[in-house]
Nucleic acid binder design. Sequence first.
DNA 1: GCAAGGTC
Length: 670
Amino acid sequence: MSLPKRYVLVIAEKPRAAAKIAEALGAGSKLTIGGIPVWIGRFRGRDFVIAPTAGHLFTLHTDEKGFPVFNYSWGPRWVYEPGSKHLAKFYDALRRLSPNAEHYINACDYDIEGSVIGYNIIRHLGDVTRASRVKFSALTKEDIRKAFEDPQPLDWGNIESGLARHVLDWIWGINVSRALTRIYQKLSGERATLSAGRVQSPTLIELVERYVEREAFVPTPLFTVSVKVLCGGKEFTLTNGFDPFRRQEDARRLAKVLRSKKLVVKSAEKRVVSLAPPPPFNLTELQLEAARVFGYSPARTLEIAEELYLRSLISYPRTNSEKIPPTVDNSQILQRLTGLPEVGAYASELLRRGLLVPREGPGEDPAHPAIHPTGYLPTRELGREESNVYELVVRRYLASFYPSSTVEELVYTIVEPETGTEFRLAGRRVVSQEWLRVYHYRKVTALELPALRTGEEVPVTSVEVVKLYTRPPPLYTKATILRWMESVNIGTEATRAEIIEKLFERGYVRGSSINATELGLEVAQILGTLFKEITEVELTRELERKLREIAFGKVRRESVIEEAVSKLRPKLEEVKRVLSDSEAEELKRRLGLSAGLRCRVCGRDSVGEEDGVPLCQLHLRAYRNLKEAYAAWREGTGVGFEEYLETLSRLPKLGRLVKEVVAYLRNSVR
DNA sequence: GCAAGGTC
């Protein structure tokens, strides 16, 4: 079949969506244009051609070198972006289809980016005065047909808002990246491509901050007692019902009392706790769980999920939703899943028990449901990683239909009668497994306790004074920094993992427990000093507020962009001026990156002095922590300053920055 | 070359 003379051109965001739309509209004949699948059909008396893009076909670009740069325009991505040559054929197909279209319908995902993707194509290749928007939130026949029966005018609010997002991210990102690259080159003499952006920079700062916090952390000692008792012929370690002591003496005194006295069961409490099943996955939760269970990086998990999606085994993975809408036929999916080895039995059980309503989580997504199995079974053997992630998704989906598990907890409160010091001994038993059987990645470990009566004496077998040290928060991993990004709402489902990888590629961070590199520390300092805004999550909040105002027509896109330009331009010009007429040393001073002296500890530029000692930003922090922590040490153990330093220097896990300051202080005393 | 956002 060949193309009709005139037709309505429907633009879908991706080939799979185009196929779904074609099916729903009964557009049965398919042909390919330059390798791109296109569907033809009639709907309500008109000829339709349905054609896909593959996400954004256009991008912002400029021919100008250097900074500041505020002249940009939209152009085809395949021309301007390396690695996007595959888009040329989508571009060609749409360019060839556009001239004979009497009308255009933007049928991309119903979100802001979808509005921009379709708008840019119609604007550059077609005619926006003959265009409509269709809105459907699920790729089901009913939703699609309903949307096409009632096409709407183009959604200008979303389009304007989306265009502004692109432009603002571009002018901030490109300008600050270029300025940063030039500054670093002048300061270090090294050529490296550096980058900064609204999402990557606050993420880098968070990683650097956590790294520095740990390296500059000074542990302080705490003292507690470890008590073992004999119950029913078995030895148990009690849980203390009190906080550790700051003074060693207090712990020793308590230990002495406990060794000489009897412990008595004060009360026994039994309670039944119910554990609700988890909701089906959104992408973040899948990435976190795959990291926890299998150790996969978030980027790898997305890659695997993408593959499973392309094989029709699971639904679209780039979603924030934790809900399965009623349009999804759960009983049909379960019916098909009964054919799976092992987990198939759970699907049968759900059908037999009539458990067909999954638990919902709070996550929402305008375009897609939670990640769930489609019910299609693997036709050929899956690789190990694919099979792991597939099973994770299936088990999670199945678990979400099950009732809560119930766990019985038994808690004894055990007391030393004279001082009233309380301890706890807690046991638990799973009464009904329910979803825990299916989702075996979560375990509730049972601990059986003997029966004890209230008032019963419990013999103490050992009491020890234990010295603990305060600890800094753990370094981030790829999975935990991803969770942080989601919690502060920067980046999107589709981009977060990629942006984390970018920080590694640039050489800003390294390690599976994420450390900052020298380069990362320097970039953080330059950005924090000169472009503070781009290092803060607040920039995104501000952006979102403005984008909402644009979407509601309260403010024009141009004025929001002008405002950003007027804020950025003077900063960039100042940096440029200083760059062109200063040498490296003077540059540092004029940009506030150096106070002119060298850090006594490491020889880097100092940012200030403490007790007459010039120190860099990092060692200054460690130095101050060291002075502050000494007060707690003296109070807790009565050590003198030199002994304090000596004890610290022998701690195996002491942070690097503190270790260096300790070594410096011990040497300079000598 | 630099962003962040789509998708393959």
